[in-house]
Design a protein around this nucleic acid. Structure first.
Length: 338
DNA sequence: TACTCGTGGGT
DNA sequence: TACCCAAGAGT
């Protein structure tokens, strides 16, 4: 069964920057690790440019380990789930200190930001270990192959067991990528292309006509709306009033505009410094994983003797901000002569 | 176990 | 528009 999938993969593998060349080039553990962390809960299309920028700027794990925290956070800005960037640096420094990546799944999983999926992926792809990767694609493929109706996430252990049963001991890295590619291109969440699937023969859901209904998932809670105010201040010399957010929690470690907490009740105006703050009519609407945010904006031109942390205009790039803060800047900048 | 943690694209 | 979804990890 695995041979059928590998045969399909050999003919349909997509050209992705982090792939091992099909003619036998060696997988670079650093690039495999970097790509897998970036791909956590993130689409291939979103990752591509980030991967190229990171590898161009930091070609080895030693280079990344020596980078400044703020530079890495700025380079990651816009990709989301910023704990990944914080853990990326921790992991790079741990690997640089020990000399190289561990070459076993257990060793890899001790590192920050490397969990059950990523450890298996690196071990299989970079070190040719027979390990089973279980991501969202694999869960969906296994739920259909075995017509498993138990809803996720409760079904995860059985789906993992199914996946392990099918894993071959030849070409484990290619096989891992093949199952994920199958899920991404054929065994898709909606309208699966069962007619051209290399596993259409053994697939139980295909036989039972249930493929499109699997995997089942427990319903998610509705997202509440939260409200807040952000203050975009600019000094007479063009410098911007910005702050580094605390290293834990939402947008932890990223650069952003000072502001109120985000609560389900109307925010109380609380400027970071006294000034002639002016409210903008437009608000930023942004959706996070578990709530919607409506962010009101205040802008002010600030005198040169204003206390606080200012970033000179020449060093300020909106692209260094997370998307929410970038949206706020886009609305406020025209009001501040930028 | 269940929750937290971003963002952009597809339908 | 309002969902759903994406190569999950940490707590």
């Amino acid at each position: 069964m695995a041979a059928d999938l590998l045969h399909w993969y050999d003919r349909h593998a997509r050209a992705l920057p982090w792939r091992v060349p099909p003619d036998g080039g060696r997988a670079d553990p650093y690039r495999v690790w970097l790509s897998e962390v970036m791909l956590q809960q993130t689409t291939v299309a979103a990752v591509k440019d980030y991967f190229h920028r990171f590898t161009a700027r930091w070609p080895t794990v030693q280079d990344l380990a020596a980078a400044e925290d703020g530079d890495v956070m700025a380079e990651w800005a816009g990709l989301g789930y910023y704990a990944r960037a914080r853990n990326l640096l921790k992991c790079a420094r741990a690997v640089a200190a020990r000399g190289a990546f561990p070459d076993t799944r257990a060793g890899l999983q001790e590192l920050p930001g490397i969990g059950p999926y990523t450890s298996a992926a690196i071990a299989a792809i970079a070190f040719d270990r027979t390990e089973t990767v279980v991501d969202g694609n694999v869960e969906r493929v296994m739920a259909r192959m075995f017509d498993e109706h138990t809803p996720l996430p409760a079904a995860k252990p059985v789906l993992t067991d199914y996946a392990a049963r099918l894993t071959p001991d030849q070409r484990p890295g290619d096989y891992a990528q093949a199952v994920m590619d199958l899920g991404a291109t054929i065994c898709t969440p909606r309208n699966p292309a069962c007619g051209i699937c290399p596993w259409r023969g053994p697939c139980a859901a295909r036989a039972n006509g249930t493929a499109a209904d699997l995997p089942r998932k427990t319903p998610k809670a509705a997202k509440p709306v939260r409200f807040g105010i952000a203050y975009i201040g600019r000094r007479a010399d063009g410098a911007w009033l910005l702050e580094r957010r605390p290293p834990e929690g939402l947008l932890g470690g990223t650069l952003g505009w000072p502001g109120t907490d985000w609560a389900t009740t109307d925010p109380v105006d609380a400027p970071p410094i006294p000034a002639d703050w002016r409210a903008l009519d437009a608000e930023v609407r942004h959706t996070f994983t578990h709530f919607h945010l409506r962010l009101s904006l205040r802008v002010a031109r600030l005198p040169m003797d204003t206390p606080g942390q200012f970033l000179p205009d020449a060093q300020f790039r909106p692209a260094d901000l997370p998307t929410l803060m970038r949206k706020a800047h886009a609305l406020a900048a025209p009001e501040l002569g930028a």
